[in-house]
Design a protein around this nucleic acid. Structure first.
Lengths: 335, 335
DNA sequence: GTGAAAGCGCTAACAG
DNA sequence: CTGTTAGCGCTTTCAC
């Protein structure tokens, strides 16, 4: 690979100093028009592009007005809502937003954490991989501005965080099912390693216990937060000799998968089997029948997280805040 | 945020030179064990991490192994598919992916183009704002590796590009409607400034002309690619004194909006009004009734675009390629 | 085994 | 307007 031309190359060819070339690029109006055009011609001719690594090394300090955002799954509309919230806030403050999807992979998360840091974002919003996310905690301890959303950091308290009351949301949903007369209620959660999967299960269990319904472990399943696993698990559940009469699905994509299996089984919703999904979706109302769902205020979460991040960047010493938002149970016709 | 510790910080604390610290990190066996352990302890203590920017500058090395991706609308599942395709490819090549959503805003696009460039991604994949996207063309002319997806660059030919045959896809969809007996067919497109909105309209017009159906301009509408505008336009269309018997919607979100209005109007699909959407969606099959849709191979587009980009980065002088993929008309029950 | 010093390519004072 | 120069944080000879 041919060696890249640099400032010196251009400077030599144009018979000027490297400083002038640098200026021609960064402050065109600060150089003589004729020099400028000569330099520009050469730049185009040899296809010179400034080495951005060097630029970055040189320009240090001060805010770059860029937020970073790390989401676990971009296919999940909930996170898309969060993204939009962050975007809108960022834009209103004149910040740009760089985002990465780590697709529920710890390795990718670590990789992106590093990249974002070294790409020198001013701070970032992240939905940590799990409660023991060492990399995130490390960054936090170093004083890097981070706001956690959707997932906490276990016992580690020195962090701004915003999440929803998953347990309560699940509790309300399952309580509704019980109220409608269901006793055999299944739960299909996302990845078991994800805190929210567990919290929603806890809510499910509590609702059952509160109503003196025996917990049947064969009705509690975890998938991998993907469409396929929801479909597969629901299929198995429905073909049990004593199948559930209601299914509470722990995330968006799983809901969709479960729906597909229910349709394929020929069972009618909600007569034969009821379903409530955790996470409402834009198209829930257009489903057949319209889906009863637990809505998380994703957009608001994003917006507030971005605001927290902004505040932290502006004042690194402020007290940490922890916000918990409530979900809303939206009753339609699937339960 | 406290300033990052650097080699000097560690060196001072360990009472050695920065060279030794550097060696301790890169060639541990080349330093005295006792010095090594002392240095390591300090590194851990103050949580020192080498500055990657500086490392990169020093280590003559070309690529950073980061792709950039600029999408116009992250709420549109089509782009999410594209993103996934790019991600998968990138990861398979050990590249990271930084993405930005410019939300159909020219200003944001320009901003992100600049940031990505200055964040020194090795190259980027972008769905340009429109066919006259000066910023993208500029970058291209400067030799920056860029692959365009979904939208072309007008007459500018020196670019790798991959898109779908929108006109043909629309033509097929509208032809199906005509075959089913519809004569009053409406088209609701996205932002008129977006090339695909026009191409889909062209396909719609051609199908009508081919079948000797008079074009009725009052049935051709453009929105802003958002859910709300689809809803609003469909509502107006349906309340016409001579309403359309079929609606062809030009993008995902508009389809959803139109669906909502159709449901609200009490009309039955497909008896009272048929609908075909451009862009299939993961949940199309779960809609009421299942939606007939024109599917764009988003994931494949993303994958191939990423491959094109990779090839271009590896060999900047290779010939430009232009790929056009076909859509697939998926017949379900809404038409 | 360790330190001093030379840059990597660039920007930003500071002089002229 | 333009050139000189001092680093940004790091790796790597080359001495000692």
């Amino acid at each position: 690979m041919k060696s890249e031309p640099n400032l010196k190359t251009v400077a030599k060819m144009a018979n000027v100093s490297i400083a002038t070339v640098s200026r021609a690029i960064n402050y065109p109006d600060k150089v003589d028009p004729s020099t400028l055009s000569r330099i520009n011609k050469i730049i185009k001719e040899i296809n010179y592009r400034p080495n951005r690594v060097a630029q970055r090394l040189r320009i240090k300090g001060g805010h770059r007005k860029i937020f970073g955002l790390l989401v676990p799954d971009i296919q999940n509309p909930f996170y898309v809502d969060v993204i939009r919230g962050v975007e809108d806030y960022a834009y209103s403050r004149n910040y740009a937003l760089l985002m990465c999807n780590f697709a529920q992979s710890k390795d990718k998360e670590t990789m992106y954490l590093n990249i974002m840091k070294s790409e020198s974002v001013d701070g970032m919003i992240v939905a940590p991989y799990d409660e023991f996310d060492k990399e995130v905690i490390d960054l936090l301890q170093k004083g890097f501005p981070i706001v956690c959303v959707d997932r906490g950091l276990g016992d580690y308290q020195d962090v701004d965080i915003i999440l929803v009351d998953n347990e309560k949301g699940a509790y309300e949903a399952v309580s509704l099912m019980i109220k409608k007369g269901h006793k055999r209620i299944a739960y299909i959660g996302g990845l078991p390693s994800i805190p929210t999967s567990q919290q929603r299960k806890d809510g499910y269990v509590k609702a059952l216990q509160k109503n003196n319904i025996t917990i049947d472990d064969s009705l509690i399943k975890f998938g991998d937060s993907k469409h396929e696993s929801g479909k597969e698990i629901a299929r198995k559940l429905l073909s049990l000799k004593n199948p559930p009469t209601a299914i509470f699905t722990g995330n968006n994509l799983i809901t969709l998968g479960a729906l597909e299996s229910i349709h394929a089984s020929g069972k009618k919703i909600p007569q034969d089997v009821a379903i409530i999904g955790f996470d409402d979706m834009p198209w829930s109302i257009s489903l057949n029948p319209p889906l009863t769902a637990v809505r998380q205020p994703g957009y608001e979460i994003g917006k507030r997280a971005a605001d927290m991040l902004y505040q932290r960047i502006m004042d690194p010493d402020r007290a940490y805040s922890k916000v918990m938002l409530n979900t809303i149970l939206i009753e339609r016709n699937s339960c």
